[in-house]
Design a protein around this nucleic acid. Structure first.
Lengths: 66, 66
DNA sequence: ACACAAAGTCAGGTGTGCTTGACATAGTCA
DNA sequence: TGACTATGTCAAGCACACCTGACTTTGTGT
């Protein structure tokens, strides 16, 4: 599952630790999602989408055509 | 995490087993999601949204105000 | 009463999302 | 050089998302 977390974070000039704090998860969890090691849980995906005021589908991409 | 799976399924007159087949998961997985015992993984949430041609946020509700 | 389909549930197992704590590396700056 | 920040990574552990297989319950129809 690809995602735009790193870009969205860079646009706001946040560190991984700063983003982790805003999402109430560990810094390692943010890193693992950004580097593609894990997909977030659905509740965490909701928190991420809400934080950036976007839809989940606009942040994450599971690669299926349509 | 609340969801509208049961209603969407009823609108199409599908059994849990039929929906499970279309999502490529077990019947018990569908049942657990409908009865609120589990949240789906993000990839499964994407498959569900795609199957019903809706956004994830229109099917699932994590209860946060905005 | 009987058969059947759908739904719900349980046990036992596997894989993963997330945790804390620790450590390595690279970049910046006094 | 030495201190500090950001990032990446590892290990060990916990909780949960899924699995198969089996069983019970409920509703429908003969």
């Amino acid at each position: 599952m690809k995602n735009r977390l790193k870009v969205l974070r860079a646009e706001r000039d946040w560190s991984q630790a700063e983003l982790a704090g805003r999402l109430d998860v560990s810094r390692q969890a943010v890193n693992a999602i950004e580097t593609g090691k894990h997909d977030p849980s659905l509740p965490l995906a909701f928190r991420i989408a809400r934080l950036f005021d976007m839809r989940i589908e606009d942040i994450f991409d599971d690669g299926e055509s349509a």
